[in-house]
Nucleic acid binder design. Structure first.
Lengths: 214, 214
DNA sequence: GTCTATATCGGGATAGAC
DNA sequence: GTCTATCCCGATATAGAC
């Protein structure tokens, strides 16, 4: 064909552009889904924010549901990183302090991801159930095992490791998920460096003291 | 009028029935809104669950939005009760233990209310902002003052009272809002009495130890 | 890959009889 | 107070030209 000789370079450029456009749509989807939910969000809104038309968006993602799942999947990966880093080798106090700090930092830097995740779980996680009962469960079980080891070695006070992990998640994510309530009551947010540090310190103190680590 | 003599009794009965029907709709609205959200829920669904037709529902509530607000308002009242009960007169350890227990009990007994509240806040609380910045803020401020008093008297270790209240809210509500995640990981729920007690104990230990109360 | 036009549908809300 | 019928709009998704 006459186009064959021109195909290579343009094709590569197009593919890259396509990938960028997909990214833009995923970003826009995160913004809109995290504030309006799956049903409240419209493809028009997302498309406009991503800088293309609705029909064009549907060229990249075959349906609203599939776009939503794609957004959610990307969120989940980011969200589990800090827990993966929790390490048996380090000193318990250091490890927990670091974990708490990185979780609060995530609530500051990716609040929309936290909120979307929250919305999905609260509504029963119809799309994430498998993900939760599988990979997440085994990950939590592995980390709980580390905590149990520390208890057995007398390095931290005995405390149910699952409840401990839930408590840390709950507190740290609260500052992203309930940011509007926090703001209404305190007038501050994690974007304020002082408030960020105070939040980290408060959470660290609570958790460490609860484990007998001063 | 000829109907005047018959009006009293039937009117009263009708008014009572109407009130009951309204209640049924509010209950159904709570169930559906708390799992599907404002936009995901349909009036048909709510009406069916309440045992009437959609048009009939719209006789009791003029619009979907107004029904939603009515449901939300009822939820908010229930949700603030436990904090109101936090009393300056009692022993700090007892007061906090009691507060935590009643919050976890609420997460067990009214999980849907917790979830609806959560959904609303996460989405930016367009309808509750005033409520949060006004009454809730002053209530929290009053209770924070009690905690500050205890700190000043040396009865609890120094800890930012607002962060402390947020932590307690976050942990206790987590077991309602993230129940599907908790279930996916532990296989248990607050409906299980053992798990309920373990949750209460874990939270109490964390908070009390964090305040230097063993 | 992107556009215009359109099919199609669910759902909120109203009109009016009974 | 409750029903049937209907209006109407917004939103997803598709068809087909360019």
């Amino acid at each position: 064909m006459s186009t064959a000789s021109r195909t290579r370079a343009p094709a590569r450029r197009l593919r890259r552009d396509g990938a960028l456009r997909r990214e833009a749509v995923l970003d826009a989807g995160l913004e809109v889904f995290s504030t309006l939910g799956l049903y409240g969000a419209s493809l028009d809104q997302i498309a406009e924010r991503a800088g293309l038309s609705k029909t064009n968006l549907l060229y990249y993602f075959p349906s609203k549901d599939e776009l939503y799942v794609a957004v959610l999947r990307r969120v989940l990966d980011v969200w589990l990183d800090p827990l993966l880093a929790l390490d048996a080798g380090s000193e318990p106090a250091d490890a927990l302090r670091g974990y708490i700090r990185s979780k609060v930092a995530l609530s500051r830097d990716a609040p929309q991801a936290s909120r979307l995740f929250c919305l999905e779980i609260v509504q029963g996680a119809p799309l994430l159930r498998a993900e939760l009962a599988g990979p997440l469960r085994t990950l939590v079980e592995a980390k709980a095992q580390i905590l149990r080891g520390w208890v057995a070695q007398g390095r931290i006070a005995p405390h149910d490791p699952q409840h401990l992990i839930f408590s840390i998640w709950a507190i740290t994510q609260h500052y992203a998920d309930f940011a509007t309530q926090v703001d209404a009551i305190t007038g501050r947010s994690l974007a304020d460096p002082d408030f960020f540090e105070a939040t980290v310190a408060s959470t660290q103190r609570l958790v460490l003291a609860g484990l007998g680590l001063t």
